Amino acid sequence: VWADPEVLGRDLRLPMGVKPGAVAAAVYTNELILHTWDLATATGQRPEWDSGLLERLVEVVRRALPAEARGGRIPYGEVVPVPADAPALDRLVAWSGRRP
């Protein structure tokens, strides 16, 4: 479904409001990766992800999810500091309030 340019360009209703399909794809990709990371970490695993995908997602999430005003409508913890050259997965989960 996400490979269809028509879907990516269409407005879709998400829990946080109506967003373009491309934004919805990024939101759901982020959710999938974060919750997979949560489960993997809890069970002592480290999934392998496409590094190019993670690099792109880190940039999208940093623009879409503000570092300030966490909690309430933004259900993430405070950003966890990591080195700028940390792996993309670590930067992604840290931006989402998790400790890599």
Rank of each mutant, 00 (worst) to 15 (best):
100 P>N: 07
62 R>G: 00
10 R>M: 03
9 G>F: 03
23 V>R: 07
24 A>I: 02
6 E>H: 02
3 A>R: 12
69 A>P: 14
63 R>H: 12
18 V>T: 13
94 A>F: 07
39 L>P: 12
34 L>G: 03
67 A>W: 11
99 R>S: 13
85 D>Q: 02
2 W>T: 13
44 G>M: 03
74 I>T: 04
11 D>P: 15
96 S>E: 02
50 D>H: 03
70 R>C: 11
77 G>T: 02
36 T>D: 14
60 V>L: 07
27 V>C: 03
93 V>G: 04
41 T>F: 01
92 L>M: 01
67 A>Y: 06
73 R>M: 07
38 D>K: 05
22 A>K: 15
17 G>L: 03
43 T>H: 03
62 R>L: 00
93 V>D: 10
9 G>I: 06
21 G>H: 12
55 E>Q: 15
34 L>I: 12
24 A>C: 11
27 V>L: 04
44 G>S: 01
71 G>Q: 01
90 D>A: 15
2 W>R: 15
16 M>S: 12
79 V>F: 02
89 L>W: 00
12 L>N: 00
73 R>L: 09
18 V>D: 09
19 K>H: 04
4 D>I: 13
91 R>P: 09
71 G>Y: 14
20 P>D: 06
45 Q>G: 04
52 G>V: 13
44 G>C: 06
58 V>C: 13
46 R>Q: 07
96 S>L: 10
59 E>Q: 10
95 W>S: 10
34 L>A: 14
60 V>G: 12
29 T>D: 02
56 R>Y: 02
45 Q>D: 01
70 R>K: 15
36 T>N: 00
57 L>D: 07
26 A>Y: 02
17 G>N: 13
66 P>G: 02
19 K>F: 14
80 V>W: 04
4 D>F: 01
9 G>W: 05
56 R>A: 08
83 P>V: 05
43 T>M: 02
24 A>L: 01
70 R>T: 07
42 A>M: 05
46 R>Y: 07
